[in-house]
Design a protein around this nucleic acid. Structure first.
Lengths: 204, 204
DNA sequence: GAGAAAATTTGAACGGCGTTCAAAAAATGG
DNA sequence: CCATTTTTTGAACGCCGTTCAAATTTTCTC
């Protein structure tokens, strides 16, 4: 029996990602163990290192899938002609909703710490970068005179701010934070942006 | 030779916190090792567990000190009668500056993950809570009609948003993010708040 | 102050982790 | 079909936080 070798590797790769995803979804990043992974994927512990250089690389693969899923959710959230305030509010609330629905998977994306010198692989940053795109539409309507560079930078800023509210709320790092409180904060915040940003980016 | 026992414990406690703080400042949370700690503080590994239930508790002690330091920096940043926009901009930039100056210590505060069920001790949340107080001053000037509850919630929201921008920038989770870009984002963001928040919290 | 009892400190040992690598197994090719 | 190369395997390595029986120190009693 001759088995196609690159196909087998690819299958193991997928199995490992799936096993890792399940483990993370069930118990967070700290539930990811090489030995459990190998057993679930039906291979030897050493085999993991034939496919991924280390567990960090495997985590990036899982996190990329999570971000792709988030990307799809955000894409389905707003139609192109929605007014900016509604669009931004919906995007922020969709982000919040996703973080709650996919709590552990989503937490893993930002909790994942890589060794000091290194930085995420380029292909991964590409996946991350796609997320800002969703905010750029409403921003273009809101700030028709802004250059693409300004809009791009601002999209990143708004994403980061939204992320801060959602993540500190979810992890309850600042104390208890019920869903409804966070959602309300996002509504006020986005409304504030729509009212304030036009004046803020092109000051008198 | 009779040695005062609670004083000795207290001294060891301080030595351990100092050793932990130094280790974190030098190599981040992952550089905190029980054996190194014991050697630096001049005690046996087991002695750590006579003073702290586990390393997590020690990390909380270190993080509380970091937050106290940040609190002091923020307190020294604005005089009471500063106009809201200037005050908020200075606070945001001071937060950013602190995160850069105390990079590892500050990262440890938010990177610290506690086991799934548990939550931070109350005394620690108290230290965290003090931070929002600094934003409430400018907010009161900006929104004289808002209730203390609304102001308190909003202070938390603005803190979280600022934190999002600073932290995603610092950890470069979204790609390269030079200091100057982050600072500019904070300036635009705070300007947007001052222009937009009054209308956003009491909508027409 | 001596000796017994209680409290504290000690560090070797434990279980678990990511990762490695010599040896075994499988695939290739002549 | 065997020799050679490639891939897979899992016991072993080094390091981790934490524990706990034994050693030490402190306290108490006479």
């Amino acid at each position: 029996m001759t088995t196609d070798l690159p196909a087998k590797r690819a299958r193991l790769r997928d199995d490992l990602i799936l096993a890792a995803e399940t483990a993370i979804a069930k118990g967070g990043l700290s539930a990811l163990k090489a030995r459990t992974l190998a057993e679930t994927a039906g291979c030897a512990v050493g085999a993991i290192y034939n496919v991924f250089p280390d567990l960090d690389a495997l985590i990036f693969a899982v996190n990329a899938r999570t971000l792709e899923k988030l990307d799809a959710v955000l894409a389905a959230t707003v139609r192109p002609d929605t007014d900016p305030e509604t669009a931004m509010r919906r995007l922020a609330l969709a982000y919040h909703g996703f973080s709650r629905a996919e709590r552990r998977r989503w937490t893993a994306v930002f909790a994942h710490q890589i060794p000091d010198g290194s930085s995420p692989p380029d292909w991964y940053l590409g996946v991350v970068g796609k997320l800002f795109r969703h905010i750029e539409g409403p921003l273009a309507t809101l700030l028709p005179d802004a250059t693409p560079e300004v809009r791009g930078g601002l999209a990143r800023t708004l994403f980061s701010a939204t992320h801060g509210i959602v993540s500190l709320g979810l992890e309850e790092k600042l104390g208890p934070a019920p869903d409804e409180v966070i959602a309300q904060a996002l509504v006020v915040m986005t409304r504030g942006w729509v009212l304030g940003l036009p004046g803020a980016v092109s000051p008198r």
